[in-house]
């Protein structure tokens, strides 16, 4: 059986790094090539403007005054923002809007998920209908609700009048405009929270529930001590999505209140939009948009770190 060992010419040098590189270049090079188009788009369309905008935020430039950027002004645009009462009002408007909308969306979304989870065909159809508000254009949602909330001819006030309540001028009343926006956002985005929780609820492991049932836990105890903790990673994620997205709301503001009445519903994105694309205060808009960006990134990174820690913790425990 044993064949005589044939003398083989030994390759020069045991292994040079270059040989390895050359051998893998075909394979790796091709894969790198796959990555390049998307990466180019990312860098040119998102990365470059981002840097450009950071630069704008430190110069003095308004297109209304000059077609080229002015001199370097340091952080003047930023400090200006923090003394600009309209901007500060807009910050507080945005935070109020964001917190309230997120809170109700989480609550309603989770409740709806809990009510509609299941493989039953009727439930699936229900969910399909319920997600419509989030898939249609926000601009359309705005116009839709503009009609619904119209003071005299709107369906909402008509509905209220049938039970004897005189509805307010939802979008025109200074104290109701923001509330209206919150209602619209909740209507539009609760379904998002819902479908994610439905997905999470249906993919929960069954063993802990059986174990708890065998241990004699009540429904509430199971919910409180098993369901909720198991849903925490998803909750963190949904919270992150909703908090950030509500901070950036623009479309429905644009199509319903257009920031009014007065400045009552000037959300940050709308305010920056106005500064930049209406008054062409490029520098000021850039600086304030960077403030918003830093806020969003802090939230995103904060939540991602929280989620990462949680995962690490649970993996350690397992």
């Amino acid at each position: 059986m044993a064949s005589p060992a044939v003398p083989i010419p030994i390759e020069e040098a045991p292994i040079s790094r270059w040989q390895v590189v050359r051998a893998q270049l075909g394979e790796k090079g091709m894969l790198v090539l796959f990555l390049i188009p998307a990466l180019l788009v990312l860098i040119i369309v998102q990365g470059y403007p981002l840097v450009y905008s950071a630069y704008f935020s430190t110069v003095d430039w308004s297109l209304a005054k000059s077609s080229t950027p002015g001199g370097f002004v340091g952080l003047a645009n930023y400090t200006k923002a923090f003394t600009d009462t309209v901007f500060l009002d807009s910050v507080s408007t945005t935070i109020t809007f964001s917190l309230a909308a997120t809170f109700f969306e989480m609550l309603i979304g989770f409740f709806l998920a809990y009510m509609t989870v299941g493989e039953n065909l009727l439930l699936q159809i229900t969910r399909t209908i319920l997600i419509m508000p989030m898939v249609v254009a926000p601009v359309a949602v705005g116009t839709l609700w503009r009609m619904m909330l119209s003071a005299r001819a709107g369906l909402v006030n008509y509905g209220l009048s049938t039970i004897g309540i005189v509805g307010p001028d939802w979008l025109g009343n200074p104290s109701m405009a923001l509330v209206s926006l919150i209602i619209i956002d909740v209507w539009e985005w609760s379904p998002f929270v819902m479908i994610i929780y439905v997905a999470a609820l249906s993919s929960l492991p069954t063993e802990p529930f059986r174990a708890a049932a065998v241990d004699g836990a009540s429904r509430w105890q199971i919910f409180r001590h098993i369901t909720l903790p198991l849903l925490l990673p998803v909750t963190i994620l949904v919270l992150m999505f909703r908090l950030i997205d509500t901070l950036l709301t623009l479309d429905i503001v644009y199509t319903t209140t257009y920031g009014g009445p007065g400045f009552k519903t000037h959300t940050l994105t709308f305010w920056i939009y106005q500064q930049g694309l209406r008054y062409f205060n490029i520098s000021y808009a850039a600086a304030t948009s960077w403030i918003l960006l830093i806020a969003c990134m802090s939230i995103a990174i904060g939540f991602l770190v929280w989620r990462g820690r949680l995962n690490a913790q649970q993996n350690k425990g397992a």
């Binding site: 369309v45 450009y52 704008f56 950030i244 920056i272 490029i282 918003l292």
Partner: peptide
């Protein structure tokens, strides 16, 4: 890191890049 960079695009305000993109 590259995958994470794509992820971040989802989360930062598009209004920040809108203006420079407009100028570009």
């Amino acid at each position: 890191i590259i995958a994470f960079a794509f992820l971040l695009v989802r989360f930062y305000p598009k209004i920040t890049t809108t203006l420079p993109y407009f100028i570009l």
